[in-house]
Amino acid sequence: MPIEVSHLSHVYMPGSPFSASALEDVSLRIEDGEFAAVIGHTGSGKSTLVQHFNGLIRPSQGKVLVNGLELSDPKTSLKEVRRQVGLVFQYPEYQLFEESVELDIGFGPKNLGLPKDEIAARVRQALADVHLPEELLQRSPFDLSGGQKRRVAIGGVLAMEPSILILDEPTAGLDPRGREEILSLIQGWHRKGRTIVMVSHSMDDVSRLAERVYVMSQGRLAMEGSPAEVFSRPDELLSMGLDLPAAAKLRAELAKKGFALPKGIHRMEEIETALLAFFLKGGAA
């Protein structure tokens, strides 16, 4: 079942001098099995928004419905919500704490009160899902490389077997190789049917992976649509302090010079195809 948000508003520290509006009247719907990206400038409310999806923040105004669970209802079990919706924070490796990789990945399933053999099975599955060898199970998570630590931490969330996986900046601080690894893992989980919500600063990653893009600006949902739709509005994105993927940028630059390629181009393969079509097939554009 989908994520449905209607008229959600959130105020930080209401009634205090620090009170600030973080979300204002946000309504959206993320379908089952969709790969959704949430983009926006730092402080645009995107992290606050996704923290509503697993009940870390309870809606104070408006409604959030996840897999049929009404999150504004105090009777809704948070444990159940968190079992169904996994949230991977930025720099998740900073949450590792156990003596061994096995125990750390098993922390979530243990909190769910699962039997021992089920926990063990889930840990193995999660480790395989993040493409780490079983030899690492008994190692201390603190002895691993940066990229491995991150994958163990994500594995800890996967072991809860959520049907919806939210990732806040999953590639922050990684080098290109590490970024590529994580992104292809996420793509794999999506192909297996998981709903993915990825918060990202990288327009190129969003353009490559997302099926639907939600643009947050100053606590509001400013734009929503397919990547092709969103990235064909460069001026609005720039005014919100956001960038464009390289291909969309090239398309926009060419358009300024009077060289118009089909609208909605945002991936490198697309612009390559369009250019080849234009030049080799006699200006088909």
Binding site: Q51, L56, R82, V88, F89, Q95, F107, G108, N111, G156
Partner: peptide
């Protein structure tokens, strides 16, 4: 701030 973040991250894994 960090305490806040870690608490949330662990709560997301079902910590109580």
């Amino acid at each position: 701030e960090e305490t806040d973040k870690i608490m949330k991250a662990q709560a997301a894994r079902g910590a109580d």
